[in-house]
Amino acid sequence: MTMKLSGVLFFPVTPFDGEGALAEDVLAEHLGRGLRHDPGAVFVACGTGEFSALSQDEHARAVQVAVEVVRGAVPVLAGAGGPLGLALAQARAARQAGADGLLLMPPYLAHGSKAGFTAYVRAVAAELPVIVYQRGPVVLDPADVVELARVPGVIGLKDGLGDVDRMQRTVLAVRREIGPGFAFFNGLPTAELTMPAYRGLGVELYSSAVFAFAPEIAKAYFAGDERLLTEFYAPLVELRSKAPGYAVSLVKAGLRLRGLDVGPVRAPLTDLTPEHEAELDLLIKTGLSLVAA
């Protein structure tokens, strides 16, 4: 089973209203704005969408809203993961909503064997096609990925580790044993900055958090504007590194700066300080001016 993904992948935030509840109308507006810039797919309720902070009902509604707004224009994939029972419930709700696939987050707390992780993936992939997210406690050897690629429904690996040696050996092993249909993604935060290295490994797909708040910049970089690496993305990574969780907080702040009130991040994340928000504002203006020029 394969899913044809290409272009810039859109990872929307999950907006919250003044009472802290899911703001479905704002999510619909956010998705609609992004779709006008032709993303390759929409990944809803994933890392940028504060997956770990959503209730099961909020997760299901966010996926439903995404499917309703996208209306088949591009694939919609939903986050799923954590305890197996929760991951299965999320997968089934996403399937019932009409989602096309899942980004499978790592299980938490329990650290089983490799055979146990494969069984976990197999159970969820029985519901919808799965892209496995390698990050945190999930660190896979090339042989592990080959085994997972043979599981029906497992269509790709998103790498959030950044171990170039491991990824090179993994890509070569999967291409040799499985073939070209299995997809690889650069899943590092602000992935554009590391894409030159990943392209050298044969990995062309990446998650773009920047697309969520500045799609013009994300699309210009995708089209080959390398100036943005030094003038926008490198300073953005420096800003992101100033506090844990800023990878998500920056995106929500960027959306607010561009006129869409998506509310704050949820604990344990924290919003940008006023000083850091001012830095982000300047960075966005710099990036947009480069694109306009």
Score class of each variant (00 low, 15 high):
residue 1 M to Y: 11
residue 4 K to H: 12
residue 6 S to Q: 15
residue 7 G to E: 13
residue 11 F to Y: 11
residue 25 D to V: 10
residue 26 V to F: 10
residue 26 V to E: 09
residue 34 G to W: 04
residue 35 L to V: 02
residue 38 D to W: 04
residue 39 P to S: 08
residue 43 F to Q: 08
residue 52 S to H: 09
residue 57 D to H: 13
residue 64 Q to A: 15
residue 67 V to N: 12
residue 71 R to I: 12
residue 71 R to L: 07
residue 72 G to C: 08
residue 72 G to F: 11
residue 73 A to E: 15
residue 78 A to S: 06
residue 81 G to H: 06
residue 81 G to E: 05
residue 91 A to S: 02
residue 95 R to A: 07
residue 96 Q to P: 00
residue 104 L to G: 09
residue 106 P to T: 06
residue 108 Y to A: 14
residue 112 G to D: 12
residue 117 F to H: 05
residue 124 V to F: 04
residue 125 A to F: 13
residue 140 L to P: 00
residue 145 V to W: 02
residue 148 L to D: 10
residue 153 G to S: 15
residue 155 I to L: 13
residue 156 G to R: 13
residue 158 K to P: 07
residue 162 G to I: 01
residue 163 D to T: 01
residue 163 D to W: 01
residue 166 R to D: 02
residue 169 R to I: 05
residue 172 L to T: 10
residue 175 R to C: 03
residue 178 I to L: 15
residue 180 P to G: 03
residue 196 P to A: 04
residue 201 L to S: 06
residue 212 A to T: 15
residue 223 A to F: 00
residue 225 D to K: 14
residue 227 R to F: 02
residue 228 L to R: 00
residue 236 L to P: 11
residue 237 V to C: 05
residue 239 L to W: 07
residue 248 V to C: 02
residue 249 S to A: 02
residue 253 A to L: 03
residue 255 L to W: 00
residue 256 R to N: 01
residue 264 P to Y: 00
residue 267 A to N: 03
residue 271 D to W: 01
residue 273 T to I: 11
residue 275 E to I: 15
residue 277 E to K: 11
residue 278 A to K: 13
residue 288 L to V: 01
residue 291 V to W: 03
residue 293 A to N: 11
